[in-house]
Computed example of a mutant assay.
Amino acid sequence: MTSQPSERLRVLVVDDEAPARQRIVDLLKKDAQIEAVLEAGDGLAAVEAIEREALDLVFLDVQMPELDGLGVIEAIGAERMPLTIFVTAYDQHAIRAFEANALDYLLKPFSDERLEAAVCRAKTRHLERNMQALGMGMLRMVAAAGPSGRSIDRLVVKSAGVTRFLRVVEIDWIEAAGVYANLHVGGKEILYRASLNELAESLDAMRFIRVHRSAIVNIDSILELHSMSHGEFELVLKDGHRSRVSRTYRAELEKRLGQSL
């Protein structure tokens, strides 16, 4: 049975300065939604804790000896990191921090209110992740329990505090967006927190076809097919988007269409 993910957070605070670390720890321990607060005094200890513990959120000092905060991200891998809030006294690190998919950025000295706002943002994102994971888990469970070949017909999408059950037939095409996917629906983009490969396994193969390693299209959205060099083609979709059909996926498209291209 699929269990409900916990809404309480396990947090790691990483800072080589004990007083700065203690201040964040003390404030976090007052929050009833924080299940546990762990500490690390340097980047190497942070890497060990992240790999060992099931963490939801990391407060990560950018500038530390031996291995700095960005080095921690590199060692773990951005896609495997818990939600991350960078903490530093140097604002020149902000751009690199957000390039590393930071949830927020606290510039020392910061107020208690600013810290609380960052934690609130983390709680919201954590809940969104849990909702997405629960939705995908339930859909996979239904698909596995159903008749052979059954596929999902709804996606659970949460944005700005609103949960939407999106009918997959409304999707025109899907593109990879790092470890997530962008759904293109009626000219709008919706970030969906699942990989393109996960979606490819769950969607109806009679309607959605992989045309490139980074793109899936709804066959009903294809308007034209243009021949290119080296056996490749370009699809023109109803929304005007053009997507290349690589040779790797050409046979799959031909099989679905029932004819050679």
Rank of each mutant, 00 (worst) to 15 (best):
Q63V: 15
L199M: 04
S195F: 13
E99K: 08
G149N: 10
A176R: 00
N101P: 04
V169R: 09
F59Y: 03
R193F: 02
N197T: 14
G258K: 13
V58E: 01
P82Y: 00
I85A: 05
Q63N: 11
R80Y: 11
A45D: 13
R96Q: 15
K255P: 00
E116S: 05
E35G: 03
R210Q: 14
E51Q: 15
R96F: 06
M1F: 04
L12P: 00
V162F: 04
A194Y: 04
L235P: 09
I76S: 13
H93S: 02
S243C: 13
L223A: 13
I190D: 15
L203Y: 06
Y90T: 01
M136D: 12
E116I: 00
K108S: 06
A144E: 15
V179N: 14
L44T: 10
G135P: 08
S246K: 01
L28A: 08
P109W: 08
R193T: 04
V58H: 00
Q63F: 11
V58F: 01
V14H: 03
E128F: 09
E39N: 02
Q22A: 15
E224I: 01
S6C: 10
Y249T: 04
G240L: 02
L203E: 04
A89L: 11
D204F: 06
L115W: 11
M228A: 10
E113R: 03
E170N: 12
V142C: 04
S148F: 02
I209C: 14
S111V: 03
E39F: 00
A32P: 07
S227D: 02
L139S: 15
L155H: 06
R96M: 10
A177H: 14
E234R: 15
L67T: 10
E252H: 09
L155Q: 11
A160T: 09
V179Y: 09
S243I: 14
S148P: 12
A75R: 15
P109C: 06
V58I: 10
A36I: 10
G178M: 06
G146L: 06
S229E: 08
R207K: 12
E201T: 11
F86Q: 07
L134I: 08
